[in-house]
């Protein structure tokens, strides 16, 4: 806690050279710092990468809405200086669908956790992919329900411990890129919070895509996942990623299962074109009515 406070002060007291501002200040709500994330958590890295990607993708931030559900990752919307919506558990994709379909000038980014998006919100995930709603989904996967204190998630690897799998997880986990791919997403990538440069590039690329894009970000959870599984601290997790990640662009998403402390395959797996929901909708409208809505 102490360390975080001093860090914030540092951020705020950086003397501005020739009117320079902190590089992230346009995109983060500095008045909400310090954030709630624990030391060694990777969510902040994912947010930083996202902010860099926004700059890189050169999209008008006033036209982006960021939507989160509930969870540690669910707090992201509240720290990013865009139109931010902190919605209910599992529903950010459905909420974002409403924003996008009602107002196609707005680019929707859903930023949430694996439990939020794949367990309670799993149905919205597959259906938004099927419809190919224009939306970037950033799914931070920490293999656990962190906000509620370390319960088993639909991504918890077999045999890993959680407070509600005290003898090791007996359920096989979901492979998120495979679900996204088979449900129709047009862009699917996975990185860890160690691979910041690649993650930024992927996010920037996905932001430019029309249609449903998914970027999974494997993130350490030092407080719950690592602790209950005795995996060391944040640095140990980074080292683990360093030693165990294999980058395989274009890998068949079937092969992307993650076991307990096994190799993690990262890369860009899917990058294809499919008519987006709004494209089909406009096409259909012009067929039935002879006129389309304007697309932003």
């Amino acid at each position: 806690m102490k360390a975080k406070e001093t860090k914030t002060q540092e951020i705020q007291s950086v003397p501005s050279k020739k009117g320079e501002i902190h590089p992230m200040e346009n995109l983060l709500r500095m008045d909400r710092m310090p954030h709630i994330w624990c030391p060694s958590c990777g969510i902040g890295l994912a947010v930083t990468a996202f902010a860099s990607a926004l700059e890189k993708a050169n999209i008008d931030p006033n036209k982006i809405s960021i939507v989160s559900g509930i969870g540690c990752t669910g707090r992201v919307a509240g720290y990013v200086k865009l139109d931010s919506f902190h919605t209910t558990h599992g529903r950010p994709i459905a909420f974002g669908t409403g924003i996008r379909v009602a107002n196609p000038k707005i680019k929707v980014v859903v930023f949430s956790g694996d439990g939020d998006l794949i367990a309670i919100g799993g149905n919205h995930f597959i259906h938004a992919a099927r419809r190919n709603i224009d939306m970037l989904v950033v799914c931070v996967n920490n293999f656990i329900y962190a906000m509620t204190g370390g319960q088993v998630a639909p991504t918890t690897p077999l045999a890993a411990y959680a407070t509600t799998s005290p003898y090791g997880c007996v359920e096989p986990p979901f492979n998120i890129p495979y679900i996204a791919d088979s449900s129709g997403a047009v862009y699917v990538a996975r990185w860890t919070t160690l691979h910041i440069r690649r993650l930024i590039n992927s996010l920037a690329e996905a932001l430019q895509k029309k249609g449903f894009s998914v970027v999974e970000v494997i993130s350490p959870c030092g407080m719950y996942y690592s602790r209950i599984n005795k995996l060391g601290d944040g640095l140990d997790m980074m080292k683990f990623y360093h030693d165990n990640v294999e980058i395989r662009h274009g890998e068949d998403t079937k092969n992307l299962d993650i076991g307990f402390q096994t190799k993690i395959i990262c890369g860009k797996f899917v990058d294809r074109e499919r008519p987006s929901y709004m494209e089909r909708y406009n096409q259909w409208l012009s067929d039935v009515k002879g006129g389309s809505r304007d697309e932003g």
Partner: peptide, 14 residues
């Protein structure tokens, strides 16, 4: 869940 959430999103998009 989806239909009411989409409605809320739509309202906030104007």
């Amino acid at each position: 869940f989806g239909s009411i959430s989409a409605v809320l999103g739509a309202v906030w998009s104007g």
